[in-house]
Design a protein around this nucleic acid. Structure first.
Lengths: 137, 137
DNA sequence: AATTTCTTGCAAATGATTCGCATATAGAAT
DNA sequence: ATTCTATATGCGAATCATTTGCAAGAAATT
C-alpha cells in the first residue's frame, strides 16, 4: 500500500529522503497519534529540532494533521484516505487518545451549519472524560 | 444580575475577595474569551502568576471553562447559565475567536453517540478558517 | 487590634517549541 | 564515481507560556 510506505510518501510529495525522515514517518504512520517528544523518545538519535521541523513540513504538505493540544503538548496524526477527519476522545485517567468514528464534517450537517457565514477550513472535535477500560477497572 | 457581578460570584463560591480578583473577574465576565496574557495586558499591576493562579482556581470551581489552545496560548471563557457549552470559530486571518450557537452536547445526539462507550465529561469543538468579515474585505 | 490563613509579587525554574549556524548529506550534474 | 549545490541535521542557545518557592502583604476571624 503506497500511502503506508514512508519512502513512497516522501517521493510522491517531492520531499527529500533522509534516514531521519524515513524513520520518523514510519513511526507516524503506525501510531494512532503522536507528539514531537513521543517520536523522539523512540528515535533518540534524531534531534528534537529535526522532529519539529519535519512535523511542520508534513503538516504543510497535508500529510499530517493537528489533533489537539493536550497536557502541554501538541498531538498530530498521519492523514490517510482511509482515515478521514474525525473527532478524538481523550481519557483523563490513562491519558490515551482514541479516534472516534468520522463525522461528515464536509456536508452541510449540523456542525457546519452552526458556523454561520464563516468559511470553515478545519474542524477539531475533542471529547474528554474517562474511557471504557478505565471505568471498568 | 447576580452571576455577572464579580463580588457576588466570589461570595457565592466562597472564594476570598481581593482587589486583583475582582478586577480580573470583571474582565472575564465582559470578554467573549480571554487568555492569561490578554488579561494581564489590561491589568498591568496584577502579576502574571496571580492571573494564572486565579484562572485555575475558577476553572476548578466551574466558573471558567477552557476553550482551546490557539497560537501558543490557552483560551478560556466565563461560564454562564445563558451561555451553555458551544463550539468556537477561530479566524486564522484576524485571530478573533467567535462563539457558535450551542450544540446540544448533552442529549444523545450525533456527537455523543459517536463517543461509543467512553464517558464524556467535556466536549471541545473548534473550527478554523476565515471569518465573514475577513472574506468580505 | 491581634491572630491566623490565604494571596500576592517577585524571581527563578520548567518545559515545549523555535532559531542560528556550522557541518553533513541528498540528489543533480558532470 | 566525483563534484557541486541546495537542503537537512545536530547542537546550543533563545523564546515563550506556564508553574513554583518563598517572603511580605492583605483578608477574614476573634
Amino acid at each position: 500500500m503506497i500511502r503506508c510506505n514512508p519512502e513512497n510518501v516522501l517521493a510522491m510529495s517531492g520531499i527529500r529522503k533522509t534516514r531521519q525522515r524515513v524513520d520518523l514517518l514510519g513511526l507516524m504512520i503506525e501510531a494512532v497519534s503522536f507528539s514531537a517528544s513521543q517520536l523522539q523518545k523512540d528515535l533518540p538519535d534524531v534531534d528534537l529540532a529535526t522532529v519539529y521541523r519535519f512535523i511542520h513540513l508534513l503538516k504543510n504538505h497535508g500529510i499530517v494533521r493537528e489533533i489537539a493540544y493536550l497536557d502541554g503538548q501538541q498531538f498530530f496524526e498521519y492523514v490517510c484516505e482511509h482515515h478521514p477527519p474525525h473527532g478524538h476522545f481523550y481519557c483523563e485517567n490513562c491519558a490515551r487518545l482514541f479516534c472516534l468514528p468520522p463525522l461528515d464534517f464536509n456536508q452541510s450537517n449540523v456542525l457546519i451549519r452552526n458556523a454561520g457565514n464563516h468559511r470553515v477550513e478545519q474542524v477539531s472535535l475533542i471529547m474528554k472524560g474517562v474511557c471504557k477500560a478505565c471505568r471498568e477497572s
